[in-house]
Amino acid sequence: MNSEDTAATGRTSGAGVQAPILEAEHLKKAYNGRPALRDLSFSLAPGRILGFLGPNGAGKTTAIRILTTILEPDAGRFTIAGIDSRCPEQIRARIGVLPESQGYPKEMTGVGYLTYFARHYGWSAKDAQRLSWALLEVVGLQHRARSLIGSYSRGMRQRLGIARALVNDPAVVFLDEPTLGLDPRGQQELLALIRRLAREHGAAVILCSHLLSEIESVCDDVVILSQGQVVAKGSVLDVIGRARGSGVRVQVPLSAMADAEQVLEALPFVVRVVPKGQGSGWLLVEVLGGSAESNIAHNAVLEALILAKIPILTFEAEGSRLQEVFLQLTEETIR
């Protein structure tokens, strides 16, 4: 795999970079001639958590379904734990999946449901039941183990789905909107569980979520998709940092706006200064350079305003949050 295609190279350990547990190369998929996934390549090391981002229709679900062998790609290939995508049954034995729109049989009990799925992975009935109780404890459902799923709340079903994704101690776990329907405490507990899964058990996790704060807080790496193509990939910090170079927003008193514009336009690395929002005192300052240079530029902007004795009401580095990077990148693609 080309090193440029590598989004998540893995954490370095004493022995160096860990070999990827998942490698995807040039995956493509179209529905009736309409491309859903144009060229997806990335890799993921064990113990890493990768956030899969993109607006609706970006190709996330298609990508997840290809990687979980539910769909066949039109082109490209991938390996999971060294198993080629042409062996889907072997791959399914090594992955755990929580699909986005998972249905549950209402007539089964929680423990019965997990036992059934565990047996598909070769566990005996007795062992499968023991494992199911343990997993229900992990997701906090042990007290409802013998209740029918029909009586579960949405959040409880979501936790049951996560438990099901873990019945085979998977090498790679795919979680599509796992916190959907969970209360804030449930969300925090689940994110902690995902972290433990990656850190303590070395599972690679691919997390799809619309909650960008969730991705930012729990993921090591991120792949942003828009209209079926990758618009950004790498570590979360790298992706945020890459977009930060675009500029800063400064709010000054209205009376000082003209002076501030004059001072900032005089700076050599400033491309342009654009007033934002009528009568709000906001100025958008576009600066040159990558992430390292832009940090210096941000300091220089502050310094110039202070030296000119212009009061600074608010100062924000644009693109400092994943959400802004996401909106900026996906908006550019749509345009």
Binding site: G122, R130, V138, D169
Partner: peptide
Amino acid sequence: MSETAFVHREG
């Protein structure tokens, strides 16, 4: 997290 929950089983 219970360790027993994560005993690897080859599918």
